[in-house]
Computed example of a mutant assay.
Amino acid sequence: METREPAIRIAGLQKSYQDLQVLKGVDLTVDGGSIFALLGSNGAGKTTIVRILATLLKSDGGTAVVNGFDVAAEPASVRESISLTGQFAAVDEILSGRENLIMIAKLRRVGNPAGVADDLLRRFSLTDAGGRRVATYSGGMRRRLDIAMSLIGDPPVVFLDEPTTGLDPEARLEVWQEIQKLAGGGTTIFLTTQYLDEAEKLADRIAILHQGTIIVSGTLAELRQLLPPAKVEYVERQPTLEEIFLAIVGKEKQP
């Protein structure tokens, strides 16, 4: 069986803000072409990890490698290998949706910017709104446009930091489908999310960040093994990822 080189490798990653130590030695590996979900409570350090991996923030210790490049020693090569969509849509409200996409395509020196823009508008169900100013878009439409912009140039590694925040259920499903298509085509997806059902639906592997370290990591099936076997009453029900998360984090909070 063919094995892929890990797309992301982190060892002993540390980061503090003044006296607050947010990351206390994070270790994780993300396989190429997979969807990796990082879970954690608000303030756990998920966005800090993403910002370090995207070269937007320097760590205090440890190492991080993205697409074969060290984030500290080769930041320019890392930036050429990635795309990042944060928690807030980074779109220009004065321009139309199509103009936003064309602008990014030109900045990234992609061939046929107009064709790329039209294809992404279609994929994200924004064709009818493509000619309208983004100021008229709903929050969900802005989020979908923001994610579409992040895919221009086909980066091998895509960071999605809580990408479906504020989306309605139908729009979330559309984004999920695009994420799955990307991974199916070989793109590595590093996903942080506050929606546990999102990780349960999409992720090949899941890690839980708690109190500055990764406390568990594995497939959903492996995480389920950490809880007692399902009780058989009328129907055997497997625990949800939400139940696993709360059980594990709750244990860690015990003195």
Results as ranks from 00 to 15, higher is better:
D154Q: 14
G153M: 04
I152C: 02
G166C: 05
P163K: 02
G185K: 12
L246S: 07
E200V: 15
M141L: 01
K251A: 11
P156C: 08
V110R: 05
I147K: 04
E236H: 13
D204K: 00
G97T: 04
V158N: 04
L227S: 03
E242K: 04
A148R: 00
S96Q: 05
L107G: 00
T187F: 08
G40E: 11
N42M: 09
Q225S: 09
G62C: 05
A129T: 03
L145G: 00
L57D: 13
A129V: 14
G153L: 07
V134P: 03
S150T: 11
L101E: 00
K251W: 06
G166A: 08
S16V: 15
I49A: 09
K46T: 01
V50R: 07
T3Y: 11
T136R: 03
I179R: 05
A247K: 10
A207S: 00
D19Q: 13
Q180E: 11
M141K: 11
Q21G: 05
R108N: 06
D31Y: 03
R123D: 15
F88A: 11
D31C: 02
T136Q: 01
V157M: 01
V235A: 13
E198P: 08
A72W: 03
L202R: 00
E80S: 05
L173D: 14
L196F: 07
V78D: 06
K46C: 06
F88P: 09
